[in-house]
Amino acid sequence: MTDDVPERPPAGGLVQALDVPRNAAIGALAGLALAATAYLFRVLELFGPFAGTREYPVLGPEGWFLILAFVLASATALLVATVLTLISAYRLSRTV
């Protein structure tokens, strides 16, 4: 017996086969678009003032909603990229 460890195949081929960079870019655009829309509707009050508006002592409402918009953008980007990658994996598995 030998103590040689067999070489692993490169993982870059799988990433390219599943179109992960394209899916991540689409997810980032979708997340940014959704977060920007939600932020603008809330901060600019495009539908008029929201019921139950309050005073925010630390950052002000714009600061808090900007943080929430970042979280919404990140979560949406991750969800969209994951779903698109799963669709790519399914399509790839059907062709093999």
Score class of each variant (00 low, 15 high):
Glu55Asp: 15
Val5Ala: 14
Leu14Ile: 01
Ala36Pro: 00
Ala89Glu: 01
Leu18Gln: 08
Leu44Ala: 10
Ile87Arg: 15
Leu79Tyr: 13
Ala17Tyr: 00
Pro9Met: 05
Thr37Met: 08
Ala89Phe: 10
Ala73Ser: 12
Ala69Met: 00
Val43Asp: 09
Leu44Ser: 08
Thr53Ala: 02
Leu84Trp: 10
Asp3Leu: 14
Arg42Gln: 06
Asn23Cys: 10
Ala38Thr: 03
Asn23Ala: 13
Phe50Asp: 14
Leu32Val: 02
Leu34Arg: 04
Thr76Arg: 00
Val83Tyr: 11
Leu18Asn: 04
Arg94Cys: 01
Leu59Asn: 01
Pro49Thr: 13
Thr76Asn: 01
Ile87Trp: 14
Tyr56Asp: 05
Leu18Trp: 03
Glu7Leu: 06
Ala75Val: 13
Phe70Cys: 07
Arg54Tyr: 09
Ala11Arg: 04
Arg94Phe: 00
Gly60Glu: 05
Arg91Met: 05
Val15Tyr: 07
Val71Gln: 04
Gly60Phe: 07
Leu78Arg: 14
Pro10Gly: 09
Ala81Asn: 06
Tyr39Ile: 01
Ala75Arg: 13
Tyr90His: 13
Ala36His: 01
Val15Thr: 14
Val43Glu: 09
Pro10Asn: 12
Thr37Pro: 00
Leu18Met: 04
Ile26Asn: 05
Ala28His: 03
Leu59Asp: 00
Arg54Pro: 00
Ala89Val: 02
Arg22Phe: 02
Ala51Gly: 13
Val71Asn: 08
Leu72Val: 14
Leu84Gly: 12
Asn23Gly: 08
Ala73Tyr: 03
Tyr56His: 14
Pro61Leu: 09
Pro57Tyr: 06
Ala35Tyr: 03
Leu40Tyr: 01
Pro6Asp: 04
Arg54Asp: 09
Gly52Phe: 04
Thr85Glu: 03
Leu66Glu: 02
Arg94Lys: 13
Arg54Asn: 06
Arg94Ile: 02
Val96Leu: 11
Leu66Ile: 00
Ser93Trp: 06
Asn23Arg: 05
Thr53Asp: 03
Gly63Val: 01
Leu86Gln: 07
Asp19Lys: 13
Leu40Phe: 02
Asp4Met: 12
Arg8Gln: 09
Asp4His: 14
Ala36Leu: 12
Ser93Cys: 01
Val80Asp: 15
Ala51Met: 11
Val58Asp: 11
Thr2Trp: 10
Met1His: 13
Gly12His: 06
Glu55Phe: 14
Tyr39Trp: 15
Arg22Glu: 10
Ile87Gly: 12
Leu44Gln: 06
Ala69Ser: 09
Trp64Tyr: 10
Pro6Gln: 09
Ile67Pro: 00
Ala73Cys: 10
Ala36Lys: 04
Ala38Asn: 08
Gly13Val: 04
Phe70Trp: 07
Thr85Arg: 05
Val80Gly: 15
Pro49Glu: 15
Ala75Ser: 10
Val15Leu: 11
Val80Met: 13
Gly63Gln: 04
Thr37Cys: 08
Phe47Ile: 09
Thr82His: 11
Leu29Gly: 15
Glu7Met: 08
Phe47Ser: 15
Arg42Ala: 06
Gly31Tyr: 02
Met1Asp: 11
Val58Leu: 10
Glu7His: 05
Phe41His: 05
Tyr90Gly: 15
Arg94Asp: 03
Phe50Gly: 15
Leu78Val: 13
Arg42Ile: 04
Ala11Gln: 05
Val20His: 10
Leu72Ser: 09
Leu68Cys: 06
Ser93Lys: 09
Leu72Ala: 07
Ala35Val: 06
Asp3Cys: 07
